[in-house]
Design a protein around this nucleic acid. Structure first.
Lengths: 165, 165
DNA sequence: ATGAGTGCAAAAAGTTTGCACCGCT
DNA sequence: AGCGGTGCAAACTTTTTGCACTCAT
């Protein structure tokens, strides 16, 4: 995941989560805390399975069950901390939605790599389109498909099978 | 689905499919024919399950099994006749890719309505972005989320519950 | 004839849910 | 104490696959 930089935020993800939980009569359990901490310890995209692994790898014994992970992931999206970005290998992929700038993705069809990019022209155009349709836009999802630079580079020392198709 | 008009095509979807099958040593079975006919009889978006229903509803007895539907849907995407657009209710949604102009979607979060729109500026911008990254773009998927005109209209004679949130 | 294609049932895979026990507040 | 939360296992959903039979070429 390319780093577009971090937006300065007034409160930490955990604080924002606390606030969210408070308004709903929910509790800040050690599982919720561990998940938020782990999730925001890196800007990588991830799916439910990877998060379970990352947590179970921790030495502090704060691993969390798969079902709880699913329940909390849904909750973090509601809370505005995470966002679903795409599907990869039939799994939902998440990324930070809080404290991270709006951006879109280039998705390589060959290696699956996600590259972020930011372009104001896109957002501006979308607002115009939405206006024309009396549509109140709250967000968007833009995925550009194709082949990334690495995968486009012709293979040097490899069999030529693919070239014959 | 709003109608953006149909692009004049040299050959019918079925013909294009025939051509595709020919180059791969595949056969035009009555199942394949029935699927293409049904799929291109309307511009609606649809998912695998809906297609199964539509076919089993036909009086000509040309219903097709669920597994064959999945196999053919994948094939029609390869053939360039269909395109996956989004997921709705956890199902892949398809739309025509052949004989229909490139476009994107406004998706209403309240009623789920898909509205198509066409905007050249978007495509142009994406090409620039792709170039900057040495990315070879083959396509994109752009979904704009929000509230459609109808759902934005304040309810006239309805309870006011929602207004209090 | 012959190998691609179909339907059926079983299998996968990710995600959700019922339930008994646990632990915040 | 009381109620929200957790883990486990079972359930669910959509999609894929193995296999024997069928049929287009």
């Amino acid at each position: 995941m390319s780093d577009l930089g971090t937006v300065a935020v007034a409160v930490s993800p955990l604080d924002k989560f606390r606030e969210f939980l408070g308004t709903r009569g929910k509790r800040l359990t050690k599982e919720r805390a561990a998940i938020v901490e782990e999730v925001f310890s890196s800007h990588e995209h991830f799916d439910a399975d990877q998060l379970v692994s990352r947590l179970s790898r921790r030495t502090d014994g704060n691993s969390v069950s798969r079902s709880t992970i699913y329940r909390r992931l849904t909750e973090l999206v509601e809370a505005g901390l995470l966002r679903k970005v795409a599907r990869n290998h039939d799994r939902e992929v998440y990324e930070h939605d809080y404290g991270y700038p709006q951006h879109d993705h280039l998705i390589c069809r060959k290696c699956g790599k996600l590259t972020e990019f930011q372009n104001d022209a896109v957002a501006k155009t979308l607002e115009d389109v939405a206006d024309e349709h009396g549509f109140r836009m709250t967000g968007h999802r833009l995925e550009v498909y194709g082949t990334c630079a690495e995968c486009s580079r012709p293979p040097r020392s490899r069999h030529r099978k693919l070239d014959m198709i």
